[in-house]
Design a protein around this nucleic acid. Structure first.
Lengths: 148, 148
DNA sequence: CGCTAAGCAGTATTTTATATACATGTTAAA
DNA sequence: TTTAACATGTATATAAAATACTGCTTAGCG
């Protein structure tokens, strides 16, 4: 049971931006910092932008900013938005052709379990991911801490 | 977020055997009934056998039987046994090299969510998957209902 | 005794989802 | 008008999972 890297990267982008505060960050910078594919990250960024999580600024000296306060970004919401396929088993997905589906109780049970999973994430926000360790995170991501 | 078909097939094998009751079922028969790979199913079956879920009988007129009552087979336990990789994101897996892991709170949060997921499954058993619909399941799986 | 139907085990191939790379376009500041 | 950023679409590569193949072992039956 895995989430995709797509979702993982979305989380990392948001963490990076949260730590940066009001300073713009570029995709290139974030990709470098985490050592991941710049191109893949770009798609994640576009998605986050379309969904209203971040603001993108084109052109020279462009970059990215959070559009909402970290306290207002729910992890549950994010996972629902970025993890495109949450159908845990075949019977929960499109094109299901498991023959016993009409009589089998797997579906409601796994749905309940998935809801419990997401409910936990709903209780946390991006702010909870940073906690009191923002300076340490900044160091790890090699962000030059901006003078306030 | 998907479980593997491996886990899915394990569930189906157990359901099949539960409906069959004390009659033996062959791997071939189960694979045919669900229209899935006989070879893959065989590996699932071996695993289930090693873990004590089912008893296998070799030789002519051999086959498979449940080793425990359906009420005693927990779904949570089964998923923990058959879903080999439960590390949802990179930082929960071996070989993690996400640079912010030391300061990031993703790990405990996703662990909590995973525990909530499994806790729901822990509340159900194989018997709950059948419910009162055993005859309907038997029909769907094309099991000739054995006279009691 | 040996044939046959079943499970056992290891390896190899195929498939699929995901991730990555590439090529080109658009925007806006300097 | 150049340059540094994001935008978009397509193609390729990678890795995990599923499936197939080959040969072996066990045990009932005639």
């Amino acid at each position: 049971m895995h989430l995709t890297r797509y979702t993982d990267y979305a989380l990392r982008v948001l963490i990076f931006l949260a730590v940066k505060g009001d300073e713009r960050a570029t995709i290139h910078e974030i990709a470098e910092s985490f050592g991941v594919s710049r191109n893949h990250l770009m798609k994640v960024v576009q998605d986050l932008s379309h969904r209203g999580y971040i603001t993108t600024i084109r052109g020279k000296h462009g970059g990215l900013l959070l559009s909402r306060a970290p306290e207002e970004i729910s992890l549950g919401g994010l996972v629902r938005d970025t993890e495109h396929e949450l159908g845990l088993v075949e019977c929960l997905r499109d094109g299901n052709d498991c023959i016993i589906t009409p009589a089998c109780r797997l579906k409601p049970i796994f749905n309940e379990a998935l809801e419990a999973f997401l409910a936990v994430l709903d209780r946390y926000t991006l702010a909870d991911m940073l906690g009191p360790r923002q300076p340490q995170l900044a160091r790890l991501m090699q962000i030059a801490i901006s003078p306030a």
